[in-house]
Amino acid sequence: MPWIDACATEDIDAEDLIRWDHGGQTFAIYHSPEGEFFATAGLCTHEQVHLCDGLVMGHLIECPKHNGQFDYRTGEAKRAPVCVNLRTFPVRVEGGRVLVEVA
């Protein structure tokens, strides 16, 4: 699987996320309060709304449409109305860049 350079670490504030589009897919990349980076599919599993306008609280991302929540580290659906887990992608940081292993 290829590792793709997605953004610089400083592009994402701590406890926040950005949208990243690549190869016809859309992703969400997160910067946790502890300074780690994570990536998930960009669209909520409830109604295909982009998570980039949502709110990161600790390790949760809350969807901007109906306030469903996922743990962005594991993709686990944590709060209704989301029931289906979010896909996650491996991330590594190299020289101030965030790399995502896209499938």
């Binding site: 409830h46 109604e47 449409k65 109906h66 209704a80 109305p81």
Partner: peptide
């Protein structure tokens, strides 16, 4: 009603 309200928002 949690679900009906989600629909009301969508």
């Amino acid at each position: 009603w949690r679900w009906s309200h989600a629909r009301h928002h969508s």
